[in-house]
Amino acid sequence: MSEKIAPWASLAARVVRVALMRKDVGYAELARRLATTFGMHEDEKALASRVALGRVRLELFLQILHVIDAEPPMLWQTAFDVATPWEERAKAVILSEIRQIPPVSIDELVARLTTLGASFTQKTLAAHVTSGNLFLPDFLRCLVILRSRSLDAFIEYRDLVSAAASTPASGD
């Protein structure tokens, strides 16, 4: 795992693990609930591995919060209350974060994500942001850029800032 990705993947894994621990849900139970609720049939070991590697999309994280009955951040509540596909809900979460004071344009957010070591080109990253198809590590980067405290129940904001400070600048 590259130097730019490792701290963010680790933080993404921690966010998911904390959510699961707070609700006392293990990977076997999570896999069962995801299969029952969404028809996702993923082996508990594969799911645990994906979480450990930080290869969780924001959409899946939102689904995890839903199936474990975790209370989402207040800012995200509207996205959870609407019966739309989960990718649309992920998009709504991203947009709700972007619209905070002061609002940030998607182009500005993408440019700043790139400096924090996001692993996609700006064009691809812009497509991921606007579609809601974003990996959780990249979403965590967004939260730092936007100075959002939405995930304070799952991770300390200073840990996100520390990861940003330790990420080599683009081109390094």
Rank of each mutant, 00 (worst) to 15 (best):
R158K: 14
A48F: 01
D81G: 15
L143I: 03
L95S: 12
E87N: 00
A52V: 01
G26D: 15
M21K: 12
W76G: 03
R112H: 03
V67W: 05
V110Y: 10
T167Y: 06
L134N: 08
I101G: 08
R55K: 10
E88H: 14
S119E: 14
L60F: 00
T130Y: 02
E97C: 05
G39H: 14
Q63S: 10
S119N: 12
L151A: 05
A111Q: 14
D159H: 05
G132S: 02
R149P: 00
L134C: 09
L20M: 09
A35H: 15
A52C: 09
Q77A: 11
K91I: 00
A169G: 08
S150V: 01
V110D: 08
L75W: 09
D43C: 07
S105Q: 10
T84Q: 09
S166L: 07
P137V: 12
K4E: 14
A35L: 11
I98D: 06
A79R: 03
V56M: 14
P72W: 02
V104T: 13
N133G: 03
K123E: 13
L53F: 07
E71W: 01
E44Q: 03
D43S: 11
K45G: 08
Q100M: 13
K23M: 08
D138Y: 10
E29P: 04
L151H: 05
P168D: 07
K123R: 15
R22N: 10
E88C: 03
D159F: 12
I94L: 14
A12V: 13
L30E: 04
A118H: 11
T36A: 14
Y27S: 04
A90T: 02
V144C: 10
D69T: 00
A6M: 09
D152L: 08
D43N: 07
V144N: 01
A35T: 04
T121C: 06
T115M: 06
T36D: 13
P7L: 10
T114Y: 10
S166F: 07
A92D: 13
A83W: 07
T36Y: 05
D24Y: 02
D159M: 04
G171T: 01
A126T: 05
A111S: 15
E71Q: 14
T167F: 12
T36L: 11
R50L: 07
R55P: 00
I155Y: 01
A70P: 03
L140N: 08
L34W: 03
A28P: 03
R55V: 03
I64F: 01
E59T: 10
R99G: 09
S162K: 15
A35S: 13
P73Y: 05
F139T: 00
A48D: 09
T121N: 06
E88T: 10
I106Q: 09
A79C: 08
E3T: 12
R158L: 08
T124C: 02
G132V: 01
T115D: 08
A127M: 09
M1C: 05
I64P: 00
L53I: 01
T130L: 12
R32H: 08
E3L: 15
A46Q: 15
E44N: 09
A153S: 11
L143D: 12
V82C: 04
S96Q: 15
A111C: 06
G39W: 15
F61R: 07
V129T: 04
Q100E: 15
F38T: 07
M21W: 05
